[in-house]
Measured scan of single mutants.
Amino acid sequence: MATGGRRGAAAAPLLVAVAALLLGAAGHLYPGEVCPGMDIRNNLTRLHELENCSVIEGHLQILLMFKTRPEDFRDLSFPKLIMITDYLLLFRVYGLESLKDLFPNLTVIRGSRLFFNYALVIFEMVHLKELGLYNLMNITRGSVRIEKNNELCYLATIDWSRILDSVEDNYIVLNKDDNEECGDICPGTAKGKTNCPATVINGQFVERCWTHSHCQKVCPTICKSHGCTAEGLCCHSECLGNCSQPDDPTKCVACRNFYLDGRCVETCPPPYYHFQDWRCVNFSFCQDLHHKCKNSRRQGCHQYVIHNNKCIPECPSGYTMNSSNLLCTPCLGPCPKVCHLLEGEKTIDSVTSAQELRGCTVINGSLIINIRGGNNLAAELEANLGLIEEISGYLKIRRSYALVSLSFFRKLRLIRGETLEIGNYSFYALDNQNLRQLWDWSKHNLTITQGKLFFHYNPKLCLSEIHKMEEVSGTKGRQERNDIALKTNGDQASCENELLKFSYIRTSFDKI
């Protein structure tokens, strides 16, 4: 039985969820670079991206490699990797027998973001014989899940209580170790020597080791999670996991709180800001991140802002960003909400898709409305799209047979046209069989910064309504002859009103 693990408890099935942008060198404390989270699957090609990484700022997932063999891993080693800020997950990587050479110096898994409450997941690794993470000293947050690894031993010899604050939620089941077939031998045991430290858990006094050649490092209890030197002297209180010299914040392997210019500090002093819960960055760093993602459509890219001495992905609820200094300031009234469309555009074809934009005031991208039916549609669209004030790209209304009016965009005031449909149009209306009105132009103002209007096959939309939009939106004169079809717009509506004058002759039985 794995020490510190839980057996036999019912657990939810383990679901495996399925960018080499360097964020800056980590400095003297770390020998390499800070790398983003990685999802490495199918083959070993991307694994080489770990070569210079000291910190993975995010998670590391290595999974679904069915053609790899043990010899493929023999020359692979990433000794610079010290810390993973989120979680480490391995799933069905064939041929991998140990992690001792792959990650010989991995010391800390912070667990800032977890995989279903777990910071370390080893699942269905069919050839893994031992973990071998002999320098792993601290899992700051989260638990361990090690399950269905039929060859995995050296679990009962690990004292997880020396690595985690609590072992109650560890789930370590259905491994070879369960069948008591392992016969784990710690260093020196074969020669009758006791080389590794022994600890007591559940009444068992057991030597602690990761492999037959690597003991588990056990520091004096007084050192807590700070770690200790090879001689057993406690590291500085700002260290986490390990250090090369005692009581020196510049000799830590990793930091308990924050890293700044080669030393570990309790908090980031001005003019620095907390970033990702582990390091200090200056304003320029946060500003660069903001600008890199301002026009990016890459998933996970955030326009970072500053709030409460932190550089964070977005302002919290009730705050909006001051564009001059990136500071989050309290909103006066309802907060603006910028919604970034991942692929640059979004099609609204149902109430469900409209709900995804609920509360958005600025759309960074283009909207395509293609709704053919739905219950209580006008009210639903207004509830979900009615706060949109600005669209950076274009607005396209296409084959939306259920629409009679666009009044559900009740606050839309600006279409920038930074991206144009077919390279020309910022407003595009095609084949809307029941569209009769755009907006009530006596109450609604709309500016279209650039781009043209396109109207074709809107049989109940009168040309007068379209011409009014040209005047109000500032697009009059931009359109070419064929942009607004004269014969297919309003051709099934009563669009022309003329005053009919009647004269009559009164007659009676005795007068003409």
Results as ranks from 00 to 15, higher is better:
G300N: 07
H214L: 04
T45V: 07
E71F: 05
K224Q: 11
S98N: 08
A198V: 04
L326C: 03
K129D: 04
C252L: 00
K251I: 10
S324L: 13
G142M: 00
V126I: 08
F283W: 07
E124A: 03
G183W: 15
C264I: 00
M83A: 04
R110G: 11
M137T: 04
Y118K: 02
V55I: 15
D165F: 07
E168V: 05
K67C: 06
N282R: 03
D86W: 03
S54R: 15
S161K: 03
F103A: 00
V281L: 06
T199Y: 07
T267R: 08
N117V: 02
A156D: 04
P269L: 06
T85Q: 15
E180S: 11
N105Y: 10
L289W: 05
D72E: 04
A119H: 00
L155I: 09
D248K: 08
M38L: 06
P246V: 07
G232C: 12
Q204C: 03
M137F: 11
G227L: 02
C328H: 00
S323N: 05
F115H: 13
E57G: 03
G192C: 08
F66L: 08
E51L: 08
E97A: 11
F285A: 15
P316E: 15
Y171A: 13
I109Y: 00
L327E: 12
E49I: 13
W278E: 05
E33H: 15
S284R: 05
P313Q: 12
K224G: 12
E130P: 00
Q287F: 13
R110K: 09
R141S: 03
S324G: 13
T221R: 15
G192P: 05
H302W: 10
A156V: 11
N135E: 05
E180W: 11
N179V: 13
L99A: 11
T189V: 14
D165R: 05
M83H: 08
Y171W: 04
I109N: 00
Y319W: 07
N202L: 04
P270M: 09
G232F: 04
E314N: 15
M38D: 08
N42R: 03
Q299N: 08
C209E: 01
D184Q: 04
Y259L: 15
R69T: 07
F283P: 07
N322A: 14
Q216V: 01
I163E: 01
G241F: 01
P220W: 01
R92F: 02
P31N: 15
I139Q: 00
I56F: 00
N257Q: 12
L99E: 00
T250G: 12
C196R: 03
L29P: 11
S237N: 14
G95L: 07
A230Q: 15
P31G: 14
P269N: 02
L60K: 00
K191C: 02
G132M: 01
M137I: 03
E207K: 14
S98K: 02
S317P: 10
C293I: 14
C328R: 00
N257W: 08
E181S: 15
L120W: 01
R256N: 03
N135V: 01
C234S: 01
M125T: 07
S244H: 13
L136M: 03
I158N: 01
R69V: 15
K129G: 06
F115S: 08
N150K: 04
D177P: 08
Q216I: 01
I40M: 12
R297H: 13
I62A: 02
R41Q: 04
K193I: 06
F123S: 02
N325K: 07
Y30N: 15
K129A: 04
M83L: 11
R263E: 12
M65P: 02
G142L: 01
T140G: 07
L88W: 00
K251P: 01
C186E: 01
D247Y: 08
H290D: 03
Y94C: 10
D159V: 01
S225L: 08
P79Y: 09
I40P: 00
D277N: 11
D159G: 04
I40Q: 02
R297W: 07
E180Y: 07
K193M: 12
P70Q: 05
V200T: 04
L152I: 08
K67Q: 02
P79D: 09
H212A: 10
N325L: 10
G32F: 08
C239I: 01
I146Q: 01
V144F: 01
N170L: 08
G32W: 15
V144I: 06
T229I: 07
G227C: 06
Q299G: 14
T229W: 10
I56S: 02
L60C: 07
T189R: 07
H127N: 02
S161C: 11
C196Y: 02
P104I: 02
K80F: 04
P313S: 10
S323H: 13
I122R: 00
T194S: 09
V108H: 13
H127Y: 14
P197I: 15
L88I: 02
N309V: 07
E97F: 15
C301I: 01
R69I: 08
H290F: 10
C286T: 05
R263H: 10
Y319C: 14
C235T: 00
K217H: 06
C196L: 03
C286N: 00
L29G: 04
S324R: 13
T250W: 13
L233H: 14
C255F: 00
N43I: 05
C53Y: 02
N117G: 04
T140Q: 06
C264E: 00
H214Q: 13
H236Y: 05
L76F: 07
M83W: 05
T229V: 10
P316V: 07
C219Y: 01
N242E: 13
D101L: 14
P36Q: 05
C209Y: 00
C235Y: 01
I62F: 14
E238G: 14
L326E: 09
L90Y: 02
C255Y: 01
R298W: 14
G241M: 03
F66T: 02
N195W: 13
V34K: 08
G227S: 13
C53V: 11
R110E: 10
Q276P: 05
R41G: 15
N308L: 12
K294V: 11
C328I: 00
G262Y: 04
L128P: 00
S296M: 08
I158G: 01
P334H: 09
T140W: 06
F103P: 00
N309M: 07
L332Y: 03
L164N: 07
E124I: 01
N322K: 01
L120V: 04
G142C: 02
E33N: 12
Y154M: 06
T107D: 02
E57A: 11
V305L: 09
V206A: 13
K310M: 09
P104E: 02
F73T: 15
E124H: 05
W278T: 14
Q245S: 07
H214G: 02
I82E: 10
V206F: 15
D75C: 04
I62L: 14
I312L: 08
S112W: 12
H59T: 13
R256F: 14
